[in-house]
Structures are given as structure tokens and as C-alpha cells.
Amino acid sequence: MPERIIIIGAGHAGGTAAITLRELGFKGFLTVVGEEEHAPYERPNLSKGFLSGEETEPVWLVPHERWEALDVAFKSSNSAVAIDREKSEIRLSDGSYVTFDTLILATGGRVRTLPLPHHDAVHYLRTTDDARALASKAKTGASVLVVGGGVIGLEAASTLKGMGLSVVVIEASDRLLGRNIPSEPAQWMTDAHTRIGVEIRLGCALSALTDGQNGAVTASFDDGTSQDFDLVVVGIGIIPNTDLAEASGLSVNGGIVVGSDYRSPDDARIFAIGDVAVWAAVWKPGHTPRLQPA
């Protein structure tokens, strides 16, 4: 049995892995490295009750005292900079090093950003800080453009509408939730959002953002039209955080490649789970199945 297990990534996958290891009887040193200052929390509520202010804290994966009882060490507000597989060593952003017998990569993904110059009106929704920043500007009566008709975009749209904002959702494809559910339930979701007053524009893409009048932002669309908004919320997917793995020589192909046991084929000591992992046996272009901890 390994004596030192390091988990890089303090999100849902990384946190669940730590809990499960203890529940399965692992007695060695267990360390979780995470970029945020918080303990692991569930992300779905960020676009719901946490954004609206109905809940003042995120939905924690487990109560804080549970981590102490599980004897899990956290390297919070920290990120892994490099993996030295020969030395079984990880260099962290604070300059310190941790060594491992087994390494679990749960680095998740980062938001896919607009291919446009940065504008202060634009918000993404991936962390608690993101949700707080958006909530602070989401005033009743304000107008918001939601770019992306996927799960995050639609959840944010319905929440912001419920907070008293006027909401327009644009989606470049011909229907909502194209990567998530079949067309029939997608149409039901479209109708449900329309009923509550969310405007849905399909086959519509954002081409530019420029300063408008009175602090607004002017959104220009690919059909030649434009409209002013107070806020822009972007939900166009994530990009798996594979840079660390790739730099250390692990196979990457739309994610960190693993077998059905979550193990890297390049190093038997290293596993990958969650949004960053892709199962080698079923990988093909355009289809990247993500693996969550069992």
C-alpha cells in the first residue's frame, strides 16, 4: 500500500476521492492541493441559490469538521507547477515540494473564454468568487446577455431572470443543450425558459463587444444586429487542464488518457479522474467521455 497519496485538484472529483480513500481504509498521508482557499464544494449551486443570494455559502462536499476527522491535509490557495516523476515530487506555486507514492490528478477544467478582447462587463461562472462578482452587479432591472445555451448558461439565465433582470440567451447552434440531451427535452427546456420571459435566440453568435452608452456594453451579432446590455455571462464549456500532465510526459488526447481503472498507461503510480480524464478505449475525435470517481 502507498504511504503518501497526493491529489491535485480540490474540486468535486478530488474531494470525493479523498473521502473515498479514507472510507476504504487508507491510513497513510493524504494531501489535497487546491487553487482556491475553500474546501471542496459542489459547483451546480453556483448558478442557482448561491448566485441568487438565497444561500450564503456554497454546498460543501462535507462539513469542515469532517475533513479534520478524516485526517486530510489541504494545500489551499496553491497550485501544482510541475511533476517530477523520477523524484516522485511535485513543485507547488508557493515554492514548496511534496512527494508522493501515488498521485491522483483531478485538475478539472478552466472556462472556455470568448475569442474577443476582454471587456469588464463579461463574467464567467466557475468558482464562488465568480458567482459573487456576478451577483454584485446583477441588479434588478439590469439587462444581461447569456452566451451559450448549455446547462450553465440556462441555469444562470433562469436565476438572473428570477432576480429581476431581463435576459437574452444566444446559442450558435439550432437548438439548446446540443451536447447534453436529445432534441425533445431540449425543446421543452426552450419553452420553459420562454414562458418565464427569457428570450432565446438560436443560430446566433456574438461577433464583437464594444463600449456602449451610460456604462453599457454593445453586443454585435453575426446577423449584423446589435444591442446594449449591462452584463454578459458566458457559458461555452470548459477546457480540460492537461498542461501539468502533458509537461510531465503523460499521454494527453482531449484529456489525460487513462485506462478503465483510471490509471495512466505511462506511469502506474498516476491516476486521473473527473473532467480532465478521458478513457483511452473509447476516445475518438469530437467525443470525450469524462470519468468521475466511482
Rank of each mutant, 00 (worst) to 15 (best):
A272G: 09
F50R: 01
T102D: 08
R269K: 07
L209N: 08
M163K: 15
G203M: 05
E54T: 12
A142I: 03
L160F: 10
A216Y: 05
A121E: 00
R91W: 01
D174A: 00
G28T: 11
L105H: 00
G153N: 04
V62Y: 11
L125Y: 00
P182T: 04
G197Q: 04
T210W: 01
P240K: 03
P182E: 13
A192H: 09
A18N: 08
D243E: 13
I238P: 08
G197M: 04
T127V: 07
D243H: 06
Q187I: 07
A10P: 05
D101P: 08
P2G: 11
T159D: 08
V233M: 14
Y124I: 15
I270P: 09
L145E: 08
V144T: 06
R66H: 09
K27M: 13
A272D: 01
G25N: 08
H287D: 06
V232N: 09
D267W: 03
F74W: 15
G15I: 05
T225K: 15
L202Q: 06
R126G: 04
S226W: 00
K139W: 04
G162W: 14
R126S: 07
G28K: 12
L61M: 07
A133D: 10
F221A: 13
V32W: 05
I238H: 06
T210D: 14
L51W: 10
R43A: 06
G237K: 01
G109E: 06
V33R: 04
I152E: 01
L114R: 15
V169P: 02
D228C: 11
A192V: 00
T242D: 01
